[in-house]
Nucleic acid binder design. Structure first.
Lengths: 197, 197, 197, 197
DNA sequence: AATGAATGAGCCTTCATTCAT
DNA sequence: AATGAATGAAGGCTCATTCAT
């Protein structure tokens, strides 16, 4: 049996190894050799499949965003009312698939990488646009002209929760983090309800 | 040009250069040579005064935190009621001395550095503890047992606002950022008022 | 030119180059770059195979000691009486494989290195212990309780001969050096013979 | 009181510091800064008085040789017969002023330095010539044509004893070292006596 | 498909040395 | 007499990357 179709396997292994290595060291300052070793191959092969270190990082970032998107999509499937959908969006941000220590650390590092790499920034912008669009879609019926402001606040708080939980030395708690964001949402909506009446 | 007592001058120049260089490149991946050149001296002199790259970064971080602290302290001077003090704390976080593009970028990088450097983490912990203590001091009279939760939310949102504004390609707007955080505070306090009655 | 299994070849080339370079410059103050260039490769490769400058030196020292040991062992093969064996030990110390200008210079440098490097000292101790053990084994039957003293004298004179010959600007003469040491041995043994009778 | 005549004081302090530093580290790989600090002055001043690192080393070497010579001269004063003089020469080599751990270490390092520095070699040659001349002066009446060979052997053994004692981790014992060399002398002379008769 | 071999480029760091005061 | 200030030069080491097999 020739080793056909190794490519996707290798690529996936490298991406996982990248996230794991960033998670463990806390830095983007890791070598291709470390990543490749963790993925069980030579660094030459890593270059062969990805073309270079930057592209390995970008692929890992892309993968992280994809997992996040999938989580949100799946959460939205079961939600019908705007409020339920908003809750679903928030909670999916802190689902176990995203909100693990090593993923959080990678997130933060990608955030910083976006400040010096255009490609990384583009990826991050896509994520932001999608989150904003999702939030607005369900906030507008509820909050009208205040929707953009509220969406921005929620988006900022989501990132802030990542930052905070990521820094604590204890294991991150997605439930607590989500509660903070949900709380902001509920307060905003409650106020609108009371004002509107 | 006096030739004595250059040390404080050089150290300050290097710290400024460090923050400027991080701000411009967006990364901690800068060389001592770059920093020294920007500060108008040889890299050997930079080592002479600081001992090494890490210590230059730590000094820059320490300086950033010191400026922030000073800003908060000065803002608190004019505030008398707890609510006014809370507003002052929040707004001082987004005062022009802190909330400039290059400082924000440095902040983010220090945040990430804290994940791999114990010394950096220690500094950040000091900042967090102080912020939390400041918030709790004025929240407790107003919110009682809910103070810790509210404080955590506000702290997270402050950091989130940094992250968000720091990412936008446009110049950061401290006023907008502060408004988001103040809004959360006001909502929480309003709710307490209505519940209490 | 096979491209596999280069490691032993490269390592040997580097060790030879190290000894040659020390021999030529007279110092351990040589750069990895010099060694690598002499061995026909980049300094990066030298680091790759040895891990660092210190380890290159230690490997060269180990090699020198190994050659010396082999020489002694082979010389001992043909000797049967204790006296013949003692002569063999002494003469093997000044055999052409050891007693070449560049090897002598390396020896002296390693001797000095042993004063600041524990690893080097350990290697030298092994050599000393082995020489002493060899000498004692054949001196004891002949000299009884005086064996240790005589062994110490011979060992010291061997090293002294290295030092002296190594310093002369003319090519070292192993025969002369060996004669000095043998002379001491013979005098000691003769005296024992005359005393005993 | 102006600080007149500081020069000799400073120079002496630097020379002592150099020997102490070499003795403590075991290497010539010490910095001018270390030496100057130990001597209680700035490295700039060390340069001012000596002109450069090499010259500091040479001065220290010269000083060591001078102390040695003085020791020998003083020992020779009380000796009248050739044999007594020879013993005096040998024992003065291991007198406490020379045969201290740090001086021995410096000696060895100077020996090695002589392999790469012409100036150092010249100094060492002077010492060797003087020792050889001293030995021959008193050996010739006793040993005639064999005097040169015996002198060479003794000189070699003296150096060998330094090397050996210098390597042991225990404090060096001048008495033991001298005994080894004296022993060789006595054996040689005894043999001549018995042959001559 | 996979890797050992190999290197050029670059960075941190050290240090002897100089100079102005 | 003495030193802080300053630097150029150099070395060890790392690493992304390429190539031949």
């Amino acid at each position: 049996m020739p080793k056909l179709g190794m490519e996707p396997v290798r690529r996936a292994a490298l991406i996982d190894a990248t996230i794991a290595e960033i998670g463990q060291t806390g830095t983007l300052d890791i070598t291709v050799g470390q990543i490749a070793a963790r993925a069980g191959m030579s660094s030459a092969l890593a270059h062969h499949y990805f073309g270079g270190k930057d592209q390995i990082f970008l692929a890992a970032m892309r993968h992280t965003l994809r997992v996040y998107s999938a989580e949100t999509l799946s959460a939205l499937k079961g939600a019908e009312t705007p409020i339920a959908r908003l809750h679903a969006i928030i909670e999916s941000s802190f689902a176990p698939s995203n909100f693990r220590a090593e993923v959080i650390t990678s997130w933060l590092n990608f955030y910083v990488l976006a400040r010096s790499s255009d490609a990384a920034r583009r990826l991050l912008n896509i994520y932001h646009a999608r989150l904003r669009s999702n939030l607005l879609h369900d906030l507008r019926p509820l909050a009208g002209p205040q929707a953009p402001r509220i969406a921005a606040g929620i988006a900022a708080l989501i990132d802030g929760a990542y930052l905070h939980q990521g820094l604590g030395q204890s294991a991150p708690c997605g439930r607590t983090a989500a509660a903070h964001v949900t709380r902001l949402l509920d307060l905003e909506l409650a106020q609108i309800g009371s004002t509107a009446s």
